[in-house]
Write a protein that binds this DNA or RNA. Sequence first.
DNA 1: AATGAAGGACGGATAACCAAACCTTTTCAC
DNA 2: GTGAAAAGGTTTGGTTATCCGTCCTTCATT
Lengths: 248, 248
Amino acid sequence: MAGRADDRAAAGMLAPPDAIFAPVRSQTAFEETVDRLGTAIKLGLLAPGARLPAERELCTRMGIARSTLRQALTALSQSGHVFATRGRGGGTFVSDPQPPSNPPSELMLTQWRETCDQRLAVELGVAVLAAERAASTDLDALDQVAGTLENLLEDFVAYRQADIRLHVGLAEATRSTSLVRAMTEAQGAMSDLIAYIAHPPQVLASSNAQHRRLLAAVRERDAMRAARVMTGHLQGTEHILAGLLPSG
Amino acid sequence: MAGRADDRAAAGMLAPPDAIFAPVRSQTAFEETVDRLGTAIKLGLLAPGARLPAERELCTRMGIARSTLRQALTALSQSGHVFATRGRGGGTFVSDPQPPSNPPSELMLTQWRETCDQRLAVELGVAVLAAERAASTDLDALDQVAGTLENLLEDFVAYRQADIRLHVGLAEATRSTSLVRAMTEAQGAMSDLIAYIAHPPQVLASSNAQHRRLLAAVRERDAMRAARVMTGHLQGTEHILAGLLPSG
DNA sequence: AATGAAGGACGGATAACCAAACCTTTTCAC
DNA sequence: GTGAAAAGGTTTGGTTATCCGTCCTTCATT
């Protein structure tokens, strides 16, 4: 008689994916908040000196209790990412000299490939959808950012921040808030890795050329060309990482 | 004197994305578990009659306490998705006649565009990476699933399940567990929508042709062709939805 | 000097989660 | 048959996250 496995084969089925039973990682509200704000700050999406919304407003916006938000802000304050001033006209501000970023964790180094895969998916989706939907004014702003990038070949920290603005900006042009969030998450996960590899000016120059071609393709609504350029753009980084990190 | 906004403009910066302060939705471990297992069952990744791992093993694998897992299993049992038998040789099994799926929620209907966007990103990433990495044996298995699909033009429920196997199987071929998870999530989010739109056999036939072309492109390691075919494949669904749902 | 807007601090209530032990049912091996 | 083993089912107690509300402190503006 036919066993269960045979039935599956007959129906053209494959074994159930292990991913179903993989660990559930329930981040607490506190952790998620620290992560969200911390990433935004490290990526420069919240610039040094910028003021966060008032606590009483922010906790409603983020759907958490004020005490929980304050735990997160305290953590970010103790790590030197923000500081708070009291009294009227006060608030919580992004610190001006940002604390040095941590070296990539053990876990990052073993799972870097997955991180890149995730990023590839988000960036490809963004490229295609931006080509469908980006408004002309969006692209004007992004062209300006691309222009800024041309002058930053010698300052990698500044370059990287503007680069992030460009990629996140493109995500915003898709008008999909979930893609914006996915993009910031992906960039946040990448940035510890990227910060620790060399980026000589000539690599950045070639990166800039790709940015230009990407924006041109998006402007001409050529989704597939945008996807092709984006793939090449990301593969550059990935090849460098592949040379430096365990093959995982 | 120059204000803060001017400084941002001068640096080629854009306003901070609203997504940073969007609500954090910390799913509890219980909710996430119900979601994970329930989705896998609804998608047919866990076939009717299939046995789940024993509770004591499963809770370790998923990194939760047994009592929490049992809450989830109780919920799934009460909703008719699984049933349990006691004693040695017993266990928790997927019910054979699955309960009817719920109609798409209010929220789904207003945010369906975001759902499609998310899916597009995942599927594009999967298509490109599968073209890079899929093993020949993976593709043989997927070809077989595609073959099964040819015979299911008249039975949409069965068709949809095999379709899901194909897409998830392609994700597995990328060897990226996070993409597999993202794919199952995306398919889960889509399925309530897809179940409620008409799929005449001729639409399914054209879908099959796209599957064949997709697999062929992947086999020839032509990432961009795979991406192009995939985009077209998904746009079919999206256009139908756009005609039926609020423009969101 | 008064007001109002901001951060800061405390205490109790609730629910989620965990850990560990124990009970009950059923099958398999001897 | 009988007992061991493997499964689900139950109970209890403790820890922690989160929420809610209240009050305090600071300080620029009026």
